[in-house]
Amino acid sequence: MNSAGAAPLSALQPKVSGPAIEFAGVSLSLGRTEILRHIDLQVAAGDIHALVGPNGGGKSSLIKTLLGQMPHQGELRLHWPEAPGVIGYVPQALEFDRGLPLSVEDFMAAMCQRRPAFFGISKRFRAAIDEALDLVGMQGKRKRRMGALSGGERQRVLLAQGLIPTPQLLVLDEPMSALDEAGIQVFERLLQHWRAAGVTVLWIEHDLAAVGRMADRVSGLNRQILFSSTPREALTPERLLALFSTHPRSTDHSPQGQPA
Rank of each mutant, 00 (worst) to 15 (best):
H49P: 07
L102D: 10
W203K: 04
G120A: 14
G53M: 09
A132R: 12
A209R: 10
V86Q: 12
R156E: 02
I63R: 05
P165C: 03
G53H: 10
I21Y: 02
L66A: 11
L78M: 08
S177G: 09
L170D: 01
G198R: 12
Q73T: 01
A7S: 03
V157C: 03
G85T: 07
R98P: 09
L66R: 01
D207L: 03
P14V: 04
R126K: 15
L235G: 06
E153T: 07
T251R: 08
P91D: 07
D130G: 03
R126H: 11
M1E: 00
F118H: 15
A234S: 15
P259L: 12
S250Q: 15
D97P: 10
Q168P: 02
A83M: 08
H206V: 02
D47C: 07
A196S: 06
S229Y: 11
S29Y: 06
D173I: 02
S177A: 15
F96C: 05
L202C: 08
F23E: 01
P167I: 04
S60I: 02
R156I: 08
I129Y: 08
A260M: 13
V136P: 04
H49F: 15
T236I: 12
V86K: 10
L202D: 05
K15R: 08
A45T: 15
A160E: 00
S150V: 10
L240C: 08
Q42Y: 10
G137S: 08
I63A: 02
M70L: 11
F107E: 03
R98K: 15
